[in-house]
Amino acid sequence: MRRIYYGRVSTLDGQTAASQYADAAAQGIDRDDVFIDEGVSGYHVAPADRQQWQHVERDLRKGGVLVVRWLDRISRRYDELHSTMQRLMSKGVRVVCTLNGMEFDGAETDPTKKAVRDAILAFMAAQGEADYRNRREMQARGIEVAKAEGRYKGRKQAVDYAEVRAWKAEQGATVRATAEHFGVGVATVARALAEQ
């Protein structure tokens, strides 16, 4: 049975997928069966709109095992996580979370066990979205307080945005090539271009 690992990293600045690659290796999953979307929000970008997730869905269309660190790697939105998991369950996929060993088996036929599985899934999906919203709200409050006290200066830019724009225009380079040239993530280059 095919075992696939899916990971997601929200930002390219400061976060890496290294821990998720290590998690996959610890589960005995070959690198060829690891799909990680980098620089992708689990709240703002639906799974179906992610490049690596599309490979996962294609490869699991006839069942198999999907291994994730935690369900929030799939989505941090209740409705999206719930519908994505139900789609996987309907194909007989078993989803395994390495963080706590929880399993959601799409091949389950016992109605009571299916009901328990779906109830736990619904709770985890709701908790994931609530955690995300709470964290964002607390961050915004902290920034407001720091601004009022004159302590908040904003995030320091990793590179000079004008320099990034000039080099990209001069070279006719792609966003990814520009990011590699400056040693930053594509999100940083996108912010530099948006500031024009």
Rank of each mutant, 00 (worst) to 15 (best):
S75M: 02
T84D: 00
T98K: 06
D131W: 00
V164W: 09
V67A: 08
G128A: 15
L66D: 06
K114P: 01
G142I: 11
Y161F: 15
G63I: 03
R165H: 09
V164D: 03
V96F: 07
K147M: 15
R73P: 01
Q157H: 12
P111K: 13
M102A: 11
L81Y: 06
G150R: 14
V159I: 14
R136I: 01
E103K: 04
V56F: 07
D59M: 13
Y132T: 01
R135E: 14
E149S: 13
M89W: 03
E103G: 03
M124V: 02
A146M: 13
A162N: 06
T98M: 07
V93G: 01
A125K: 02
G106D: 03
R69M: 12
S83P: 02
Y78G: 00
A107V: 09
I143R: 03
Q86E: 14
T109G: 08
Y161E: 08
V65A: 03
K62E: 10
K114W: 12
W53A: 02
Q54K: 10
V68K: 05
A122Q: 05
Q54P: 05
W167E: 04
G101W: 08
G128N: 04
R76G: 03
K156P: 07
A130P: 00
E129S: 01
R165F: 07
L121N: 07
S83A: 12
A119G: 13
W167Q: 01
L88I: 04
L121Y: 05
M138V: 10
V68R: 00
F123Q: 10
H55D: 09
D160K: 14
K147P: 07
K153T: 10
E170K: 12
E129A: 04
S83T: 13
P111S: 14
E149I: 07
V68P: 00
D79E: 13
I143F: 06
K168Q: 15
G128R: 03
K62W: 10
E80K: 06
V145W: 03
Q86G: 05
S90H: 09
H82G: 01
G142R: 00
E108N: 02
R77V: 08
V96R: 00
D105K: 05
W53S: 04
W167G: 03
D160S: 11
G64Y: 03
L121V: 04
A107C: 12
A107F: 09
K114L: 14
I120Y: 10
I143L: 09
D59Q: 14
N134I: 11
D110N: 14
I120C: 03
V164S: 07
Q54F: 07
E137I: 03
L88T: 02
F104Q: 05
L71W: 00
G150M: 10
K91E: 11
M85E: 07
Y152K: 14
L81V: 09
V95N: 03
T84V: 07
R133E: 04
W70K: 15
W53Y: 11
V93F: 04
I143K: 02
G101M: 09
A146K: 11
Y78Q: 08
D118A: 09
L60I: 04
L66Q: 02
R133S: 06
D160F: 11
T98V: 13
K114D: 05
